[in-house]
Design a binder for these strands. Structure first.
Lengths: 222, 222
DNA sequence: TGATCCAATTGTGTATACAAGAGGGCCGGG
DNA sequence: CCCGGCCCTCTTGTATACACAATTGGATCA
């Protein structure tokens, strides 16, 4: 990892924000965070800048950082963009698949199956990530894979919340299965459509899920 | 501005990279850059991190930063993703257009017309940017607009190169015109297709244009 | 003669100190 | 009593100092 302290602080703040430990709209004092995490201001600053880059906090010149609140609408927008990018990745994967990609995707898919069948949510969460990243890689578009990966990571906390509620594991796996069939059969447009739908569904689910969360968030930002 | 020194350094490095003053693959020494720009290492580090976030430099743990070289393939990939996102923005714009959006887009479009007719390349470059950002805004998807804007900025130097060569101003304007017609008539899918094509064309043009540039770049990374 | 290991040097990662700007409170005037 | 200006403080932005890790060179041993 590039910088251990920075990464640690960044992840901690990220978790604190997602878990609601740091309320949206709350001011983030650098020295306060520094003492809280037992590091100096320098890594805290860098962490805040990274979080600002991914839109999790807002850096106001000379006036400190605040936690930005993403209402459900914005989260849905993020899933929508994710869907579009994943769709493109899937279409490319269907066209450009090689033996290695096929093996990687199949392995990840089987991992998902095992986790889904045993109703292992944490396992599925992990295998699901592997599965999606395998598709990104199979697009053979480095930049697209990076963009997908970055957005995937940003949506990670929301995805994770999702697996806690509905019994979506089996449904998700079956969607995966349809996607895999499309990709393996080289049907680019079907792969695109199915992946897009698979991701948009997650956004839809979240619209409901996050209403309460967003209400809280919205209260704090005014 | 958030941080004047940081911004200054960041822009300087960015320009140096784009202008070829800093060759791809070249090591970026922090103290060297600091002395070069007359600031301390801290803002240089922050600038490098920002540049790393947009993929212009690569930060290797304990081993310094290097200028990443984007081969033509990668640039094409970037335009491809841009095309997808702009297509989505266009589709949303067509569906969600309100009077204000319509006026903004029309104004930017007329600006493009004026610049194209007088063959004012710098003017067209500027108006073109306004035009595209107007569409992003008209998508009424904050996140999508942000993503499009960020990617647009990353592609800016390559776009700029493009306008220098071909007499693409008129062609570009006519593509814009078709896009505007689709959006104003509320035809989401046509808007998507036309915008996508408009952007992909730029990527195609660049494939040719950047061959020489990319060769140089590739040599340095090995 | 080649390979491996150790040490020195270089450059990053972190901490702390200093300076400057912005916000809030207090005091004075209307 | 209220409004405005000034000063103080708090926090950020920048600089510098220090420590550790990695790489590279040389030296020694096989």
């Amino acid at each position: 990892m590039t910088e251990n302290a920075v990464r640690k602080v960044r992840d901690e703040i990220e978790n604190a924000v997602v878990s609601g430990d740091l309320a949206p709209g709350e001011r983030l004092d650098e020295v306060q965070l520094a003492t809280r995490f037992g590091v100096s201001r320098t890594p805290v600053r860098e962490a805040l800048m990274q979080l600002s880059a991914i839109g999790m906090v807002e850096l106001r010149p000379r006036r400190g950082a605040i936690v930005v609140s993403h209402g459900p609408a914005r989260i849905y927008e993020m899933f929508e963009v994710m869907a579009e990018l994943e769709g493109l990745a899937g279409a490319h994967a269907a066209r450009r698949l090689d033996a290695k990609d096929r093996a990687t995707i199949a392995a990840a898919h089987e991992g998902c199956r095992a986790a889904a069948e045993t109703n292992d949510r944490d396992g599925y969460y992990y295998e699901n990530e592997t599965f999606h990243f395998a598709i990104y890689a199979a697009s053979h578009s480095e930049f697209l894979a990076e963009q997908c990966g970055a957005l995937h990571r940003r949506l990670r906390p929301f995805r994770r919340l999702q697996l806690r509620v509905a019994n979506r594991l089996m449904a998700s796996f079956e969607e995966h299965d349809a996607v895999v069939q499309a990709i393996f059969s080289g049907d680019a447009e079907q792969a695109r459509a199915r992946l897009r739908a698979h991701v948009v569904v997650q956004g839809d689910r979240f619209g409901d899920l996050l209403s309460a969360y967003a209400e809280t968030a919205r209260r704090n930002t005014g």
